[in-house]
Amino acid sequence: MSAVPLEAPVHAGGGGAGGGEAVHGAAVLAPRARLFPALAAVYRAQLSRARVARIPLLFVATFQSIGIMILMRGVVDGGGEARAVVAGSSVLVVAFVALNLLAQYFGQLRADGGLDHYATLPVPPAAVVLGAAAAYASFTVPGTVVTAVVGCTLFQLPLAHLWVLVAVIPLAGAALAGLGAALGLLAPRPELATLLGQLGMSAALLLGVLPPDRLPSVVQYARDLLPSTYGVEAFARTFGPHPDWAAVLLDLAVCAAVGVVSLTVATMAYRRAAVR
């Protein structure tokens, strides 16, 4: 290996005047894409994909949750169990889209070389991961709201505090989308990413929708480990006559913390997947 004698003159590539940095004797580098504009661009591009590819899946997610609530109507008898079912089914829509579909998307993108496109653009890894995660979390909004409204009607729960979804969807969305992105990017093969996404969603279904009191204690611990649980609990608490807002905030804070950790892991996984 030898040192390369290079007398390459400075060549301003694409608006090098703004933001480019010069290394001694080397060409001026084009500026990097900044985090927020890049994030916005990825978000917008991902949202536009919904029109082409995602809408049928969003219907599936919503109908699945509504179907589960209809099934559970014969099992639970109002009260706390009904709240858990409605909250669990609503957050299940988030788990389906943000965790399962995003894990599949990144698994596929990584497997067939799609990541090369992003990796050869001067874009911060966090912008790609956060933009995609935010878009997938946004996809869940209509389905989650529809599920919550239908559930409240089915089980005669008050609609008064449904506004809390404004906090539940983005925070549970961040936690689950971060997990989905990390699983998709870390899985060595796309089939494994799909499998892990499906498993995560099944866990969210079983541990989130079924009322916790009836579960064996081992399963209850598993339930505590799943980030979607905290979104479910926060949402379920608001159906009561006098919601414990401090507990709601605490649950949401757990979601936010898991979101930060999982999105950081996903960003690191992206960096690792991009350069092999």
Partner: peptide, 29 residues
């Protein structure tokens, strides 16, 4: 990434975008 533009063999990252949005998004990134 700040010196060169790369056209790889795969288009999966852009497949579901419109031609116009694919070009614009790539430019923004």
């Amino acid at each position: 990434a700040r010196i060169l533009a790369y056209l790889g063999q795969e288009s999966t990252a852009l497949d579901e975008l419109t031609v116009s949005l694919a070009a614009e998004t790539t430019g923004r990134l």
